[in-house]
């Protein structure tokens, strides 16, 4: 059984992003980039399924310009078998990303597609669900456990009130939450080996999909700064301030 893992190149999660002075967008020039943390968890899960003998092939796919090949090589070093880069310079809306991925799903016919639940740049949390709708597949979002059982997959989901387990008929879509697994570090030999694994490049334009933008980014501004607070010296002073100054406790 094949697993497809779409991944995204994003700002490294340790880096605090800055807004450009002209408020046109955030400034990503010379900023450290990395594989989106939730996508990394998706790769790890697919590789573990392969190591467990459930899965025969793990295919990583990313949509972006040549620079996202770096993240695809990371996925290969973590254990993916081959990679596909869908080349575009555009910053695509989720619906258009999902449409491109739909074409890849039609070509590759995976039984399972594992994606990160959200990218930490746009914070949209959409692509997996959209791909599920377009392919007619069921979805297990925000997964903390994935168990394949014959022609079904049981997915335990992180929901607001706790955990929910659902059963999906394969082929299915899973999106990862942070407790699904702890991704491994790529070893040096595996990083070297990844350089020789196949990475195919396809042009987004060749898929014959209308990729017209659906949104117009009008401006990007920094968030309102909080006013600097004060340091209190004791619990007594803290309680006094909360009662009489902030008036949030009585």
């Amino acid at each position: 059984m094949k697993v497809l893992v779409p991944i995204k190149r994003v700002i490294d999660y340790n880096v605090k992003v800055r807004v450009k002075a002209d408020n046109s967008n955030v400034d990503l020039a010379n900023v450290k980039m990395a594989i989106n943390p939730f996508c990394e968890i998706a790769v790890e899960e697919a590789v573990r399924l392969k190591e467990a003998g459930t899965v025969t092939e793990v295919i990583a796919v990313s949509i972006g310009n040549k620079s996202c090949q770096e993240q695809l090589r990371t996925a290969l070093a973590l254990g993916a078998d081959r990679a596909i880069q869908i080349d575009t310079e555009e910053n695509l809306d989720s619906i258009n990303v999902a449409k491109l991925l739909q074409k890849v799903v039609e070509e590759e016919q995976p039984q399972l597609v594992i994606l990160g639940k959200q990218a930490i740049d746009s914070d949209n949390n959409q692509t997996g669900q959209m791909l599920a709708a377009l392919t007619g597949m069921p979805q297990g979002t925000f997964a903390s456990a994935v168990k394949i059982d014959g022609d079904k997959v049981n997915v335990t989901r992180e929901v607001d009130s706790g955990l929910q387990t659902i059963a999906l008929t394969l082929p299915a879509i899973v999106t990862t939450d942070l407790r699904l697994n702890e991704p491994r570090y790529a070893s040096l030999p595996n990083i070297m080996k990844a350089k020789r694994k196949p990475l195919n490049v396809k042009s987004a334009a060749d898929f014959g999909i209308d990729l017209t933008a659906r949104t117009n980014l009008i401006k990007v501004t920094p968030p309102a700064e909080r006013k600097a607070g004060i340091v209190v010296e004791s619990i007594d002073e803290l309680v006094e301030k909360l009662k009489n100054e902030a008036k949030v406790i009585s």
Partner: peptide, 8 residues
Amino acid sequence: NSSHVNDE
């Protein structure tokens, strides 16, 4: 194509 198993 989907069913509920249980809630915790």
